[in-house]
Design a protein around this nucleic acid. Sequence first.
RNA 1: GGCGCGAUGGCAGAGUGGUUAUGCAGCGGCCUGCAAAGCCGUUGACGUCGGUUCGAUUCCGGCUCGCGCCUCCA
Length: 463
Amino acid sequence: MLTIYNTLARAKQEFVPIEPGRVRMYVCGMTVYDYCHLGHARVMVVFDMVARWLRASGYRLTYVRNITDIDDKIIKRAGENGEPIRALTDRFIAAMHEDAEALGVERPDHEPRATDYVPQMLGLVDALEQRGLAYVAGSRDVCYAVRKFPGYGRLSGKSLEDLRAGERVDVMEGKNDPLDFVLWKHAKDDEPAEVKWDSRWGQGRPGWHIECSAMSSQLLGAHFDIHGGGQDLQFPHHENEIAQSEGAMDPNEGGTFVNYWMHNGFVRVDNEKMSKSLGNFFTIREVLKSYDAEVVRFFILRAHYRSALNYSDAHLDDARQALSRLYTALKGFDAEPRVNWDDAYARRFRDAMNDDFGTPEAVAVLFDLANELNRTRDAALAAQLKGLAGILGLLQRDPVAFLQAVPATSAGPAAADIEALIAARAAAKKAKNFAEADRIRDELRKHGIVLEDSAGGTTWRRA
RNA sequence: GGCGCGAUGGCAGAGUGGUUAUGCAGCGGCCUGCAAAGCCGUUGACGUCGGUUCGAUUCCGGCUCGCGCCUCCA
């Protein structure tokens, strides 16, 4: 039985899908005006893991992760670059796909682009206006009247009184209430034609929040099972999505927009949230210059998805060492991944994953398995290890290839040169010239190459 | 100011009302020409003050510290 920590309930709950055997999941994706950073990597990896586990559990899953390709920052960036918006967003979508693929993140079933769903957004705004939840503000923007939606604040645990809008931010002129948010932004003269859509409120473009309500209902229906995203989206974004989606429903039908809300924790740097605005972010591609992408994935998955995750080189080094141990255990086996669910390790793994996606415990099971594999060298255990790890998207490569992989930036010695030195050392060893053999080994060690002698000969790996 | 989350051994990071994960690092041993890897053993922890309990790191409350949201943000 799967339990999920539901932000809406602030507790773990048994997961019961709306339709037996079928799961519909929507995750808020990226705004594509720049390269993805490690915070984005975490969302992608975490919900990829969730998707994999749901499928491994036998559910038929439809997974949607959207792309925001229209908003203020995109318009600004395109203007700065002097390029069309579409060129900018296409470029960064391609980059995002490269990053995701490197991290072993499978493509969601749908990756809707906001600009392809403007008619659906307008339909929602229309419905909201008809139900008296939307109005045209003095700025000519169409806004949502937050006070008219009874459950506002339920997800984030904030009451309208607590929010005290205006405390930190200047209130936008023309809104009835400071907390009201924009559904449809009225076009400005200096904006490019590319960001103007016709509507019965005049030319304009969608507000950010309405995008997700429109795309999710179009692709998953008005009610679905799981909605995910980073913790920072809890308020106001997800709160607003609920207000929009439930507010636009036929009052006679009503019902709950989403049953389970999942939020992953932040990636931090020096104990502070990694973010664009703080400027303390590392892009995925930057990190991948010095670390193997699987190490980054392992680093993310060895922590629980809801906890904060501190990023540093030292921690990635540590993750790399740990992952090497797993691959080392698999060395020498040409194992096909195969899970035997009757086995005690597999059961522990499953219990861990079913407990709100407990990947730290699941990873611990992998290490226990590796330990027994090292002792017994039993091929069935190797298949089991590779099978369970595969559910997490780990350990599917050739072990030697992983252990010898070179980070993109540090150009270590070529494999052929290393092999030549190993041969020379073997000759020296045979002649009992241990001083020379050790000299060669020390020489290679200086270049980050570690030699390992065994009965079958000498192998090497990158330190 | 309001709301929320957290504090675990040198580091990372789970978990549990009593037997105290997992990884890295350390220490001792086995293996090895010597190493490395691996194996065996081992040191070491639950912020603080109270309460509940036969027993609390685990439950409850106060305090301290850290972080996040209340603005765009994964």
